[in-house]
Design a protein around this nucleic acid. Structure first.
Lengths: 340, 340
DNA sequence: CTGAAAGCGCTTACAG
DNA sequence: CTGAAAGCGCTTACAG
């Protein structure tokens, strides 16, 4: 069943059917209805590959998880961003392609090659740590790309992330308002740009409030996961000196830190207050419930979709957007201690 | 840059280049190396749409979340299954296509039409409640499909799920071993096949162990989420009579139930023991930590990939597989009460 | 408002 | 071992 069959059945030309499929206006109502009727009866569906071949546009957007490892579908932050991104671009008429073909990964990803292979209209790149060089190649190509939590520099690229400095500022401010003056930080590996931005913002804010800055209270884990937080906290405890309040670069780091504190008979928030980052599901169920920074994942996803659309239809130049984060107060920061 | 350019540069025919791309054996080493070299230098990438058009195979697998609502990327179970599915089919040389184009959803999904449009080689269908009729149409088509947690009946379809009866049996057995004789159940809506299977298995097991069955201790929520568990538990509490132990059809239901119990000053597991289902991340962080049934998501995903592959390459007939679940003991079931 | 024809970039018998 | 040619199912100037 192809366009020719439909054309013959309707007694019109292939061009005419094509125009009807693509909603051209210069077709008589009569012809149009006749053809539409036949398409419906036969259950005809135009072939995307033929269309792509002819037009060089696939109506497909590539989704790339850069910086391998652990950071696939199970990553709580990206998964939610992706969810709203998917809805947004879906509304605009695009479907999503996920690279998974491992055969192509042999040669360092080869992302650009994959994109060309599928003639993707654009890409969204989400990322963890250690970005492969091949991402840079894609970034600089003429394929429109939007990065989430990764700074893209190409002239057909843009990126979006939460305001990581603001985040830290809000945390310091909240701690300050409660009288905490000795502030610590648990980050991910130093290779993580995101963690470093949060740390930088945190130190700046400490400085703005005129608080002392003690480097012993700043520790890094190997990644953003629970075990890293546990180990980092243990190291801080063993160093002999503890801050009154700690900001962790992720909720899992915070949860790990709480476990370490608990094991040392230290109470959260009475001995050490903790604020995490991400607002994952589990925050609500820890005890004490974890105060955290919520990124507006829904907004990030929607904006990413819209920015990419503009890029793909050259309705906009490169743009970089930063989204306001929000402090979600629960128990671990101590400001609701009366309720205990 | 296309196959003809490469052919001309190498001074061979298009057919020859095509054979080299596709690893045909009847090509001289010399020609092969010459062409390969040129392909490399030029950075030539074959077009997937042209290939698909010619071969009717896209090397793409469709991922379908049936039964809309809430059940997208953020669903903890499916997301992990998908993760391992992706790896498995990636190894086999396939990429993944996610339907998101909302324009097509206008007419009840039209899944089959979408598949044809992209000439997908196969589909994986994961599902929540209330499966759309259009899924059935796809199931019965000649496109190979594998269902996860959904029974597919088409002759080119298969499905895979955890052994939902066994799950319940293990829970009842565990409760029994601890001396609990009054067993309750919190399920999702009655429209959920999965919840009903678990309930059925649970009742059977209760029967096998010769325990009394009290219908008042069996309640259903509206879905698998926390609030449903909370409300269901409250209803059971208000009914005046409580079982000694409860199996909830999901971890979130269990967590909601624990919240309701806590609010009524009832302790878990001292007053009521609880076992959840899914082993989501949050189980570890609730207090008490939630004992649960872990589905082997990794195995389910890998098997789904392999089964689909066999179906797509007609190396196997329809097959239905059931995967052994595992009891993960933490605190909420009470068997480690000594440790408290 | 409609149609004939070239072209998009591959694959695949088939011939040699 | 290699190549000429038809065909996959669309779109797009262009002519009328």
């Amino acid at each position: 069943m192809n366009i020719r069959t439909i054309a013959e059945m309707a007694g019109v030309s292939v061009s005419t059917v094509s125009k009807i499929i693509n909603n051209y206006s210069d077709i008589s109502e009569e012809t149009k209805n006749k053809v539409l009727e036949i398409m419906k009866q036969t259950g005809y569906v135009p072939s995307n590959s033929a269309k792509t071949l002819a037009t060089k546009k696939s109506n497909l957007i590539g989704v790339i998880f850069a910086g391998k490892l652990n950071i696939d579908f199970t990553h709580p932050f990206f998964v939610e961003v992706l969810n709203s991104f998917k809805k947004q671009v879906g509304l605009l008429g695009y479907d999503l392609l996920f690279f998974s073909n491992e055969k192509f990964y042999a040669v360092d990803g080869e992302y650009l090659a994959r994109c060309k292979h599928f003639q993707l209209d654009g890409c969204i790149i989400v990322t963890g740590q250690q970005v492969e060089p091949s991402i840079r190649e894609l970034d600089l190509s003429d394929i429109p790309c939007i990065g989430v939590d990764i700074e893209l520099k190409g002239k057909n690229s843009g990126f979006i992330m939460s305001d990581n400095y603001k985040m830290s500022y809000k945390v310091v401010e909240h701690f300050y308002l409660q009288g905490y003056r000795e502030l610590g930080y648990i980050g991910s590996t130093e290779e993580s740009e995101i963690s470093n931005m949060r740390e930088g913002g945190y130190k700046n804010a400490i400085d703005s409030f005129g608080l002392p800055l003690n480097e012993n209270w700043f520790v890094n884990g190997d990644n953003f996961f629970e075990t890293s937080g546990y180990e980092a906290m243990n190291r801080m405890i063993e160093s002999g000196s503890l801050p009154r309040a700690i900001f962790a670069a992720s909720d899992l780091l915070a949860i790990g830190a709480m476990r370490a504190l608990k094991e040392h008979k230290l109470s959260v928030p009475q001995d050490v207050a903790i604020i995490g980052c991400d607002d994952i599901e589990a925050c609500k169920y820890t005890s004490p419930a974890l105060t955290t920074i919520r990124q507006n994942k829904d907004k990030i996803g929607r904006l990413a979709g819209l920015m990419l659309y503009d890029l793909m239809n050259s309705q906009a130049e490169t743009s970089n957007i930063v989204v306001e984060p929000e402090l979600v107060i629960r128990e671990s920061c101590g400001c609701r201690l009366d309720n205990f």
